[in-house]
Nucleic acid binder design. Structure first.
Lengths: 195, 195, 195, 195
DNA sequence: ACACACGGGACCCCCCGTTGTT
DNA sequence: AACAACGGGGGGTCCCGTGTGT
C-alpha cells in the first residue's frame, strides 16, 4: 500500500508526518522544526497552514475523532447491551487499525489528551465509549475490562507490531477483545476469516 | 493516600514527583524546573542529586526494571508454557498495580522508551516478556494477544482508573488478562500474597 | 461618526486604519498583518499599494507634514515675533485637531520620529517650529515653554480626550497655549466662536 | 551626574538600560536582545531576573508609579482647590524631572499604557491626577488645560531637551504650567529644594 | 545540601517581503 | 486588485547544564 506521497497537497503531508513524528517522539517531543525538516520546508511555511501547534494537532485528530463519535453514537442506538458493545468494539478496532499511529498517540500521550480535553469534549467521548464496553459485565469487572481492552487495542496498533498485516491484526484484535470482555462471537461468522 | 511526603529524603521525593509529572505531562513535557518547583527547591538542587536529566529518569525506572527482570527470569525457569505465562502475568500485574503511574509511562512514552533502549537492554527485556505470554497460543494470535494484554494492563493502571482500590484492580486485571490469553485459572486460587 | 468607510478607495482605507493602529499600539507595535486583518484583506494586498512598511508610514504622514511645512513657512514670513508665534500656533493646533491620532503619533512615537529623521528633514522642521514659539520669550523660558506647548497640544489630541468636540477643543487649546506662552489674544477675536 | 554604572547589581542595571531603550525606541520597539547586548549579557540572563517582558516593564515603572500615587493622595488631602493643584503639579514635575525618560514613556507609549491598564489601576491614577488639575478651572477649559499640562511636561522632559539643567528645567516647567492653568505663584516662594 | 547567576541553544510565534496565479 | 504559498530571520520564552558561593 505505497502511501503515494508523490504530490499530495502540503497541508495533508504536514498532517501525515505530524502523526508519524508524534508517534515516534510524543507530542511534546516533536518540534515544528522536525516536522518542517521532514518535508524540506521551513517553519514559516508550516505556520502558513497552522498558526499554532495546537491547531495542527486538532487538524490531525479531528477526522479520527469524528469517526469515533459517529461510531459511539451508532452503537448507543443499538437495543441490547451486547449489540452496543459489539458495535463500538468493531468500530473502534477498525479505526485503530486504519490509523495505527494516531490511535496510539490519542490514547496514551498526556500532552495530546490535555489539549483535547480543553478544546473538545474528548473526555466525554471516551467515557461514553468506555461505558458501552463496561456495561456487558456489571460489577467491578466491567470498567476495568473495558479500560484494558481500549488501552490494549490502542497499544497494540502502536509501534510494536508495525509489520503485522492489517487484516490479520483486525481479526485478532477482535478475537482477544471479545474474549477479554466475555463476548461470544456473533452468529454470522463476520466473514473476515483470517487464515 | 500520599505516601508520607512528611519528611522523606529529598532524593526520593524527587523521584516521586518526577513519576507523577512524567505521567501527567510525558517525559518530554516535563522540565527540571517543573520538578524543582513542585518541591519548592531550585533546579541547582536537583542537579545535586542527579547530574543529568537522563540520570534522573534512570533512577526513576531502575528499581521497577530490576523487579521486572527478576520476574521474567523466574518465569523463564518454569517448565510449562502456561506456568511461564502465569508467572509473568501475575508478576507484571503486581508491579503495575504497585507502580501505577510509572508503568503507564514506561509502556507508552516514546521519549522514555528511546532513552531506555539506548542505555539499558530495555527492548530485549520487553521482548522476552512478550514472548512468554505469546507462547501460550502458537500462530498469529499469540503475539497480538500478548501485546494487547501488556498494553492493556499498563494503560488501565494509568490516570483513567486512579480511584479503583489496589486489590480489586489487581484481581480484575488478572481475570481479564487470563481470559484474553485463554489461560485457565490455576487450581490454587493464587492468593494475592503481595508483600 | 466613522468618516464614511462605506466605500473609500482601499488605499485610503489602509492609511486610515494605519493611523488608528499606530495610535493604539505605536508604530513598532503595529504589523502589516494587523492592518490587513482590520480590512479583511491579506498582507499581499497591502503590498500591492505600498512596497514597504516605511512607504506606508510616509504615505500616512506626508500630507500632514506638507501642511505643517506650509504653516511654518508662512509663519516665518511674518514681521513680528508675536505674529510668527500666533501663526504657527493656530496653524499647528488646527492640524492637530483635524488629525488627532496622527499628530499624537508624530510627536511621541520614537519609531516614527527615527524613520522620518532619516527620510525627510523632519527634525529641521520641528526645530523651526519650536524656534518660532520659543522666540516670544528670550531666555531659558522660551524653548521650554515652546516644548511644553507643542507636546501638550499633541498629547491632548491623543486618545485621552477623544470625546471632546472638535471646535471646543481647538478653542481651548488655543487659550491654554497662549497663556502658557504669555501671548495676548489678538484684537480680532479670531472668529472661531466655538459652539 | 555620572550614573555610577561601575558595579551596580545587574538587576538594577537592567532596569536602567530598559528605561533608556524604551525612551529611544518605544516599548514595542525594544527587544530583550537589545537590552542584553547593552549590558554584554545574554537574553537568558535577563530571563533570570525577569521572566517576561511585562515583568521587566512593571519593575521599571513601579517605583515611579508609587511615588506618583503618594503625591496624588497627599494632594487630595489638601483643603483648597488651588492647594490641591499646586501639590500635584510640583510633585509631578519633580518626578518628571528626576525620571525624565521614564515619564515620557509612561505618558505617551501606547504599549506601556495598555499593559499598565491591564495590570495596575493605572488609568484610575491618571484620572485622579487630571481631575486635581482640572478642578482649578470649572467648565470645558479645566480638563483640557490639565491634559495639555501633563502631556506637555511629560513631553518636555523627553529626548528633546536632554541638555537642559535639571533645576532650571524644574523651575521653568513650574512657571509654564502655572500660567497654563491660571495658577498664581504661592506667597512662600515654594522653595524648590526637594531633597 | 542547597541557592545565585549566567551561557548556549532551541522552540513557538510571527513578521517583512517575494513570487506566482487568478 | 487580490490571494496562496513560502523563505529568512528575529523576538520572547524556557530549557539544560555549569560555576561559584555559602
Amino acid at each position: 500500500m505505497a502511501t503515494a506521497t508523490v504530490k499530495a497537497p502540503t497541508r495533508q503531508r504536514l498532517i501525515d508526518v505530524a502523526v508519524r513524528l508524534f508517534t515516534q517522539h510524543s507530542f511534546a517531543g516533536t518540534s515544528l522544526q522536525m516536522i518542517a525538516n521532514e518535508l524540506g520546508i521551513t517553519k514559516a511555511a508550516v505556520y502558513h497552514y497552522f498558526r499554532t501547534r495546537e491547531e495542527l494537532l486538532l487538524a490531525v485528530v479531528e477526522p479520527v475523532l469524528d469517526q469515533l463519535r459517529t461510531i459511539v453514537e451508532t452503537a448507543e442506538a443499538q437495543r441490547t447491551r451486547t449489540a452496543r458493545a459489539e458495535n463500538v468494539l468493531t468500530g473502534f478496532i477498525d479505526i485503530a487499525v486504519r490509523h495505527r499511529g494516531l490511535i496510539f498517540v490519542l490514547a496514551s500521550d498526556p500532552g495530546v489528551i490535555d489539549m483535547l480535553r480543553a478544546q473538545q469534549n474528548y473526555g466525554d467521548l471516551i467515557n461514553r465509549q468506555l461505558k458501552l464496553l463496561a456495561d456487558v459485565d456489571p460489577g467491578p469487572a466491567g470498567p476495568i475490562s473495558a479500560a484494558v481492552v481500549l488501552a490494549g487495542v490502542a497499544g497494540a496498533v502502536g509501534p510494536a507490531l508495525v509489520d503485522v498485516d492489517e487484516n490479520v491484526l483486525r481479526q485478532q484484535l477482535l478475537d482477544v477483545s471479545r474474549r477479554a470482555l466475555g463476548l461470544r462471537a456473533p452468529r454470522r461468522p463476520a466473514g473476515t476469516d483470517a487464515k
